[in-house]
Amino acid sequence: MDTLLSLRVFAEVAEHKNFSAVAERLNISPAMTSKHVKHVEARVGARLLNRNSRNVSLTEAGAQYLLTIRPLLDGLAEAEAQLTSDRLSPRGTLRMSVPVWMSNPAFAKILTAYHQQNPHVTFDVDLSGRKINMVEEGVDLALRVAFKLDEGLIARKLAEVTFQLLAAPSFLDRFGRPETSADLNNAPMLAYSQVAADGRLKFGGEDGIDVKLRPILVSSNESILHQAAVAGMGFAMLPNWAAQDDVKDDRLEAVLPNVAWPKLHIQAIYADRSYLPAKVRSFLDFLAGSDGFPAVLK
């Protein structure tokens, strides 16, 4: 059997989780699709896929094997494309996971500018805010501020984002405008579950901020926290980038504006591979370049 084709079939089935769909996509029979996967499993001596009549999923060995062979298959595809093109150009679908708060005009502008320069790249963007398995779900790139780096992945710093404690003017009219950080103790907070689910804000060392607010809304979705802050529900720690228009138009007001609130890095998370597909490599470089995050985070 053609081992290279078998590897490609296995990778397609692993990412699409459907034998029939892959068979149609590759113009082979479902039975032959299954034979190719069994051929790969026989070569490596391990079960790579769990499959039944309804579901297909990667085993632990399968996830690790896919992580190893994907860059090899991507590199081979690009090498083949290079033989028929004067230069290697980014192409294909870039599957990406980004924080909910990046659903804003600034990030849309970045995507538009990149696509204008690279029209053969399309985007498939997940904004759910959930924790993802990049290998099993076939995600090329994740942008994160707060995260735990899984094994087999690497992170690249792209830009720095300042966070600010904000509240609606109507809420501050009722609650009062804090003059010191101590005034925030037991204040109602709209808390981001992955950073401050307990309402505690601590940063800056011994001379910094250490206060405990009272969470009244906890969520991993930054958008609901943002909208609840605008509605006057409580205090929220939001990235300046996402809230700058609300501050400008007086829908939100900076709280203790002279405090050095925390700055966090937007980082790109992707598979630890020595050869990145052109679509991923070029988009990473674009995000870090003058038309990317630096242009919108001024």
Rank of each mutant, 00 (worst) to 15 (best):
A23V: 06
V211M: 03
S181V: 15
V139I: 15
L48S: 05
E41A: 06
V195S: 02
L67G: 15
P71D: 08
F175D: 00
I69H: 07
N133T: 12
R214N: 12
L264V: 03
L4Y: 08
H39T: 06
D210T: 09
N55L: 13
R43V: 14
M233S: 04
Q64H: 13
L88C: 07
Q164L: 03
K212F: 09
E24F: 12
F19Y: 14
S34E: 04
E15H: 08
V40C: 07
A236P: 01
H115D: 00
D126F: 09
S6W: 06
P239K: 09
S57W: 13
L190T: 01
Q117C: 14
M1T: 03
A197F: 01
G75D: 13
F19L: 06
N185Y: 13
N133W: 11
N52V: 05
L7A: 11
L4F: 09
P188M: 02
R177T: 14
F163I: 00
L153R: 05
A77F: 13
S57M: 12
R95S: 10
L201F: 13
G62Q: 11
S97D: 14
V296T: 13
I209R: 11
T84R: 15
T84Y: 11
T180V: 14
I154S: 06
L184H: 09
E206I: 06
E136L: 05
L217S: 00
L5G: 01
I69G: 06
E160C: 00
G92S: 05
Y275N: 13
S282K: 09
S128L: 04
A159G: 01
P90V: 11
R25N: 11
A168H: 07
A288L: 09
T68M: 14
N221P: 00
A295K: 15
R25W: 09
A260N: 11
L153F: 13
A243M: 11
A260Q: 10
L88M: 05
T33Y: 02
A106I: 00
A113D: 12
L256W: 08
A14H: 08
D210N: 15
K202E: 10
N258E: 07
L252K: 01
L111I: 04
V195I: 08
N240G: 10
L213F: 01
E206Y: 11
F171D: 04
R251V: 01
L276A: 10
M32W: 04
P169T: 03
L94S: 08
L49C: 02
S219W: 08
E78R: 10
S223Q: 06
L58Y: 07
K17N: 08
T122P: 09
L141C: 05
I269H: 02
N50D: 13
S220F: 01
E253P: 01
L153E: 07
A229R: 02
A46P: 04
V280L: 08
L190P: 00
D245W: 05
A14F: 05
G45E: 05
T59D: 03
L276P: 04
V37E: 04
A254Q: 07
F175T: 01
N185C: 06
R70I: 09
R214T: 12
H115L: 04
V121A: 13
K148S: 11
A271Q: 11
L49I: 10
N55K: 14
A42F: 07
L7S: 06
N18W: 04
S53A: 14
D198M: 03
D210R: 09
T33Q: 03
P188D: 00
S170L: 01
Q194A: 05
H115W: 04
E206K: 14
D207R: 12
